[in-house]
Structures are given as structure tokens and as C-alpha cells.
Design a protein around this nucleic acid. Structure first.
Lengths: 295, 295
DNA sequence: ATGATTAATACAATAAAAGTATTATTGATA
DNA sequence: TATCAATAATACTTTTATTGTATTAATCAT
């Protein structure tokens, strides 16, 4: 059975006249007769009563017509859906991200993307920073938000955000009145610090301190910035955190102080499998790029 | 776009291998490549990534595949629905009938038909006996239940039921103790009678009485048997009604007496437009015929 | 590097569809 | 009642589309 034949039948059922229907279909009348005959033969059912003088739908034809209209509509829809998917306008994309991305970057990107591509279903998965590249390689996620570097050659990354560290100090501590600090002022302070394993921040902060001429005294470690802030609030020590953490405010008890002088920036990047990027993925990357270019 | 191409794509999406898919489709590999290429060209979207080494669905292909599976299923369903409609197994049939058919004949026919053809939607319309043939001719109903004769040449009828008249007498009247009556015993009785217009029963009863040697004294007329029975109950007179009216019992107050001797039977027939009977109609007629043959 | 695998391409053969001309049937009209 | 006009079906030819066979080109594994 051929969609063309279904179209012929559909038009014929509207016109109930072979000549007129043929004209509408831009073919001559005999092929129409033959195609309908073939269709009926294939179905084993007469779809149209036809005398030489008038044509009308049989009950079977009426039933078939209802179905055929649905099918023809579906065919158009299927084609359109495929085209839209081809342009990345619909589909589903799984995004894996580490906790640090939730402070400022992710909300901006997601909001913009959902506004621009409402047909796309985004699936969000928070995970440890180190797991993001693995999840990408395994195909568990389609796009990752992480801190570089990434050691897989099949993964491409692009930095979206470059942010300085700030010092998080207790509200009533000795630094509370200062507007800004020099890094070496913190040399004698007890540090609460990201765990060395999952986050690159550990090594970035350590090397920054070395350059400032001291080796920080680490009194406690934590994996999540929220936990670090909690420790600072409780007076366990001071912490260096990425600037965007300020966004969350963390509910008071902690002050953030800008650090003067040379201090490495930390980066957040978007990452994806280099091979065969889908249009949707490309559209997401582009969106992320321009969302972050805004400031 | 061709259903054949959709089938090709669907199989190809399952196999993800042109050679294997072609084998399953009983064609060679090149036509498959070309058909897919054509389909993609038509859609303007790549449906499959294909290197020389591996084939996989693009996001657009995934979306299209979901749609195509639905379409292929619909096509099969449409074909089956048309075939079933062709055999009269599904569809809709409008039945017009006069009140007298509701006592015994219609319930039997309908019950049997609904059991046998559960896919058919029956639409029932009660109407005056005289309107049934008109409704048939106008196409308002597809099949009628009526009392012959019918004067339209385009209408065919077939008698389903032949039933005698019985006398309906008041419960406490002078005939209440009798088992049966002779028609001429009723010669002096007041009659309540069907109206001459809509029902053939009037003339049938009148001519029966003439043959029995009297002209009935009609004290009241009514169009519906229920009304006649009400009049009998109230003592207005006696009535002759079709035997099947007994089925309704009519809630007491009335006794039915068999009438001995020659008495015309009255008939109920099924009627339909002679031209182009649908399979459903034929199936309904056949059903009615055998439902009434049972007794 | 070499060979096996596999999708695409070239070209010929086959099949299907469409077009033109004609026929047969049926209402309408004179 | 005969004739005409309308119209779906059929016959036959031409055109178009599809398939098959043979071959090519690219890629992965050894």
C-alpha cells in the first residue's frame, strides 16, 4: 500500500468524481481509476460504489477514509517532527553537572535554553565533578558542565566562565570589617578546604597560596561549598571559594571578601563528546556560549 | 513519501545494518541505501549516521522512527477496519421502528445482533408506522421495522412475524371467566380501536369483523396499544390487539382472550432500500430472519 | 600494510505508473 | 424511443521509478 494511493483515495472521497479528483491531483483520470482499483483489490473491499453516473462511499470506504485522514495527518506530522528534530528544536538532552555550576551558571543557561527551545526536554543530573567526563564517555549524559581540565581525548570542552576566588570569613571574625584582603594576610589562618580528590579547586588554591609565600594550615576538608560555608560560619576557619558561591548567600553568618593581587581564576566549562554532535547539542552549546557572553 | 520507504526505514532502524535489513526485506542492499537516501532528501534531514563501519540513528531519526512505527501500525489497522467494515462487522446502522415492534420482536433481534456483532453501533428511532417507509427513502434510517404493505418500489420488505389478534377485555367484565371467544360474540360490545390513519390494524380488524357478520361499534380511538389497553382497563370497551402486546402485561386490569375461528393474522416486516445494501445491512437482515425463525 | 567488511555508486534490466485514445454504460433530453 | 452527454473503465504505449548485479571507496582489525 502506498501513501500516494491513500492521498488519491482521500481526494476522491471528497470529490466523489474521478475526473474532478484527477484534476485536483494533477493526473489524468485513468490512473486514478486503476490506483483505486488496486487499493480495493489489496484491501479486498470495495471502497466506492460507482456507476457510470455517480460515485459514493461504501461503509467500508467511510471507515477507511476516517483512518486514512488520520494517517495522512500523521505522515505530515512525522515529517515535520523529524525536520524540527533535525534543527534541534525538539528532542531530549541529558545534562550532567557538578554542584558548583548550580550557583549561577546553570540557572542562566537553562532558563535561556528553555525559553528558546521549549520543545526540548532537558534531563538534569547532578554528579561529582570527576564523574562528569566519565558520564559523558559512557553516554549517560549528552553534555556536561565541569571544571577543566578533562583528560579524555573524545571529549571537547569550552570555557564558559572564568571567576576569581573570594575569601569566606566568619561574620564576627577579625576580617569582618575589611573590604578586601591580600592573600598573604591569610597565612596564619586555619583553612577549611575542598577535598583534594574530586575538585580541581584544591590544587588551584594550594598553588595560589604557595605563590603568595605560605602553605595553608588545613583544619578540615569538605566536598561541597555549602559544607565549607557551614564550617566557616561555625568558626572552624576561613575558606577560599569561587566567586559565584556568593550568589547563594548561604543564609548569613559568613562574609565574602575580595582578594587583591594576582590570584588564579577558576573555570567552568561545557563539555561534550566530540563525535557526531546532534543539532540539539550544538544548539545547547551555542545557547550556553551566548548566555554567558552576556556578562 | 512511500509507505514502503517507511517500512524500509523502520527495519533499518532495528537492524542498524544495511545488509541485514535488506535481507529481512527481501531486497538487495543498494535499493535500501537509495530508498533511505531518497527519504532523507525528501525530509531534508539525516535519519541515520552511517560510516562504512557502523550505522546509528540520529536524533531526528529517533523522532521519526517513533512516528513511523505509529503510522505503520495505523495503516494495518486502517486496512483491517476497512475489511471488517466490508464484512459488516463494524459500522453504524440506524433502525426505525413503530411502537408495536417493541413488544417482542425488536428486543429479540437487537439482543441477538449485538451479541453477534458487538462492533456495530445501532441507533434506534421510534416513529409512526407510516413514517417508517418515508424515513427509509429519505435515508434517515437504514432499516425499518413495520407492518406491510409498503407502497414504495425502492423498498424491499420481508415478513418476520405473523401473529393473531387477541381480545383485550376488562378484568371484571362479562368475558373475564372465558378461556376463549368467538369474534361474533363481540358484535354488541363497545370497541376501542386503533386510529384509521397510521396503523393498518384498523382496516384489518374492521374487515375481520365484517366477515364475522357485524360492524363494530367504535366508542374511542387511540394510536398506541398502551392507550387502548388503558381504555379497556377503565371499562370504555374491549379491543382487538396483536398477540405480542400480551408480552407487556400492561400492569393488570386487562385480560387477553384467544379468538377462535378464522381471523386474519397481522404481520411485522423488516424493510430496507433495495439498492446497494451494505454488508452490515445484509448481516442485520440475516440476523433478524434467523432470530424470528427461532419460534 | 593488508584484508575483510560494508555503505555508496554506476549501469542495465525490470516493474510500475502515467498518459492518450477508446469503449461501455447510464441518465437526460428531444 | 432514440440520441446525446457524461463518465468510469479498459487497451495500449510511453515514461518514470525501482530493483539487481557488479563495482567502488572507506574504515576497522589484524
Amino acid at each position: 500500500m502506498d501513501i500516494k494511493a491513500l492521498r488519491y483515495f482521500s481526494v476522491l472521497a471528497e470529490e466523489l468524481h474521478f475526473g474532478h479528483a484527477a484534476k485536483r491531483l494533477h493526473i489524468s483520470q485513468p490512473p486514478l481509476s486503476r490506483q483505486l482499483g488496486k487499493l480495493e483489490h489489496e484491501l479486498g473491499v470495495k471502497l466506492l460504489f460507482r456507476t457510470k453516473r455517480q460515485v459514493s462511499l461504501t461503509p467500508a470506504g467511510q471507515v477507511f477514509l476516517d483512518e486514512v485522514r488520520g494517517i495522512l495527518a500523521s505522515v505530515n506530522e512525522a515529517a515535520n517532527a523529524a525536520r524540527r528534530a533535525g534543527r534541534g528544536e525538539i528532542g531530549r538532552l541529558t545534562v550532567g553537572f557538578f554542584i558548583g555550576a548550580t550557583y549561577s551558571l546553570l540557572p542562566k543557561i537553562l532558563h535561556r535554553f528553555q525559553t528558546q527551545s521549549p520543545g526540548v526536554r532537558l534531563i538534569l543530573q547532578e554528579m561529582e565533578l570527576t564523574q562528569v567526563p566519565q558520564a559523558l564517555v559512557s553516554g549517560e549524559i549528552d553534555v556536561g558542565i565541569l571544571r577543566p581540565p578533562v583528560s579524555y581525548s573524545t571529549i571537547e570542552t569550552e570555557v564558559l566562565l572564568r571567576e576569581p576566588f573570594v575569601a569566606a570569613v566568619p561574620e564576627n571574625g577579625k576580617f569582618s570589617s575589611k573590604k578586601q584582603l591580600q592573600l598573604k594576610e591569610l597565612a596564619e589562618e586555619p583553612f577549611v578546604m575542598f577535598s583534594p580528590g574530586p575538585s580541581v579547586l584544591y590544587s588551584q588554591i594550594m598553588s595560589a597560596c604557595y605563590k603568595a609565600g605560605f602553605r595553608p594550615r588545613i583544619v578540615q576538608e569538605a566536598r561541597h561549598p555549602e559544607t565549607l560555608l557551614g564550617l566557616v560560619r561555625s568558626g572552624a576557619g576561613i575558606a577560599l571559594v569561587a566567586s559565584s558561591v556568593q550568589m547563594r548567600g548561604s543564609g548569613g553568618g559568613v562574609l565574602f571578601k575580595k582578594i587583591t593581587g594576582p590570584l588564579p581564576m577558576t573555570e567552568i566549562a561545557i563539555a561534550w563528546r566530540h563525535k557526531n554532535p546532534s543539532p540539539l547539542l550544538l544548539s545547547f552549546i551555542k545557547n550556553a556560549r551566548s548566555a554567558m557572553k552576556l556578562r
